[in-house]
Each structure stands twice: as C-alpha cells, then as structure tokens.
Simulated scan of single mutants.
Amino acid sequence: MELRQLEYFVAVAEEENFTRAAERVHISQSGVSAQIRQLEQDLGASLFDRSGRGVRLTPAGAAALRHARSALAAVDAVRQAVDEVTGLIRGRLVVGMVTACTVTPLFDALSAFHHEHPGVEIVLLEDTSDRLIERLRTGRADIALVSTSGSPPPGLEAYEIIREPLVAAMPADHPLAEKPQITLADLTSYPVVSLPPGSGVRKVFDDACAAAGVNAEIAFQAVAPTAIADLAIRNLGVAILSESLTAQHRPALTTRRIEDITTEPVLSLTWPSTTNPALRKLLHHCHQSFTHPPPSNRKPQVTDG
C-alpha cells in the first residue's frame, strides 16, 4: 500500500468519478484506475461499486475512507512540522468561491500570496455556499468565500466582508415601484426571479416567506446576479437580491426594501481552525487586502452569488 494510492482512493471517493479524480491529482484516468485496482488487490476487497452510472463506495470502501483521510492528514502534519522549523511553505490550498461571486481583495490576496510562496499550488473552485461549507467541514477545501443567512456558518472561523438588506428590484413602471416599501405579501401577486437554493440570499428569502406564511412564486432561478437583474429588466419577474447587486443596473431597475425581512445575507471568508502554515500565510494576505486595499480599489468590489 502506497500513500499515492490512498490519495487517489480519497480523490475518487470524494469526486465520485474517475475522470474528475484524475484531473484533481494530475495524472491520467488509466493511471488512477490502475492504482485503485492495485490497492483493492492488496486489501483483498473492492472499494468501489462500478456497476452503475456513477462510482459509489462499497461497504469496505466506506470503512477505509476515514482511515485513508487520517493517514494522509498525518503525513501532511509531518511535512508541516518540518516546514515550520525550516521556514519552507509548500503544499496545496483549495480556495472555494460561491458561484458568480467576485471580491477583488481576495484576488489581490491570492496574487500576493502566490508571488511570495510560488511552491504552494492554489486550486480555485466555484459551488453553492452550502456545498462549500460542507467541503470545509470535511477537509475538501481550505478556505471559501460563502454567503449565509444572518451570520457566518457556526463551527468555522470567519472574516465578515459585507452584510446588507434584501431588496426587490423591478422596472420603474412596475406596480410595486409605486410603493415606498413593500411586504412579502405584496410579492405574491407577481412572479419572482431569485438565486437558487444554497445561497445566503435565497436562504434569507425562503426563511422569511416561511415565517410569514407566504408562498412566493419563483418563476426563474439563475446563479449569476446579473442574469437575475436582466430578467427583471425584461419584466419576467421581480428580482430578489442584496442591495449592492442592483446598483449597476440603475436606472433600468427600481429597488424597494422588503420591510418584513429583518435577517440579512452575510458574505464572509470562512475556514476551519488550522495549523496549516500555508493557510495562515494566505489569511495574513487576506487581512492585508481587506483592511489596506490599493488606492485604486479602496472599496471592495463585491458581486455576491
């Protein structure tokens, strides 16, 4: 049994796909398959059920997964202990970003970190906030930019970037634009355009509707806030977005506060407690970028999914 075989086994188990696992570990699919077969032969049991369309862990594979992760974590801990003594920073950081979300200071931090520590591989991935948080909790991501309802996710460290109220956005000639403020009940007469489940904005909206006993008709969903705004501009529905996301679409869109939504979506940089020296260095650069941005970028540019 070799460490690389355990690495490939964990990659296939988490990706549930040999092709994606091969891309993740940077070797051919045939190479991953051959190493997994060798590992299964050494263990005397099949680790994956390959009979369906996807790849699923067998009971033996499920039993082995936790120990394989622990073994790889122990090896990483040995490397980190030596690196801390020698001052060397290396390894791999998986950085998650909620889909269609751009925060310029984060990119500035990644750039500064990469120039200072070129030996660290940076992997970027996009997903919903819910799935990114799950990746953080299971060790499949090191740090992530996530959008949540009301507060950062519990049990994780977080740097809050922005929180702001939800608004309803519509063209100036829409009937709701005549009201200075609107309620959730007002929205029930019109189709709604929203982000999909798994985002902080949608969680705030869904929870508020449930609390008020309101059933809003979600006519369209899109992962990009700009797409939601474009649909609203074309009168295909009232857009539900956080306030800053509508600014670039004025005067095509008029916004109104939804007075009975009191919880705000929160965009935050989130990570598990860590002794990883590479992550600690990246967090230092993030702190610098968010608190002391370049003169041309004093206000963080946020496009939140």
Rank of each mutant, 00 (worst) to 15 (best):
L145Y: 06
M1V: 10
R280M: 14
T254D: 03
S242H: 04
S242V: 12
T128S: 13
L125W: 00
M1A: 11
T246M: 14
V78N: 01
F9D: 03
I182D: 03
S28D: 10
H117V: 13
S151M: 06
A13K: 01
N235S: 14
P153Q: 08
V75P: 00
Q35K: 13
I228C: 08
S149A: 15
L106T: 05
I240F: 11
I258L: 13
L187E: 01
A247L: 15
H249Y: 12
L283K: 00
A229W: 09
A247T: 12
R257G: 00
L88Y: 01
Q221H: 13
A60M: 04
P154R: 10
F290E: 02
L184H: 02
A112K: 02
D83N: 11
H67E: 10
H174L: 13
G119N: 13
L65H: 01
R90Y: 03
G44H: 06
C209A: 11
V10I: 07
A278C: 09
W271Y: 15
G54N: 14
A247D: 14
N276D: 15
A34L: 15
T104L: 04
G52W: 08
A144W: 08
F48K: 07
P118N: 04
S242K: 06
A278V: 11
L283I: 07
I133L: 00
L43C: 12
L166V: 10
S244V: 00
A22E: 09
S149V: 07
V94F: 06
S189C: 04
L253N: 02
A63C: 03
Q248S: 08
I89E: 03
A81M: 04
F107S: 04
A62P: 02
D173V: 10
H26S: 12
L106E: 08
H26L: 13
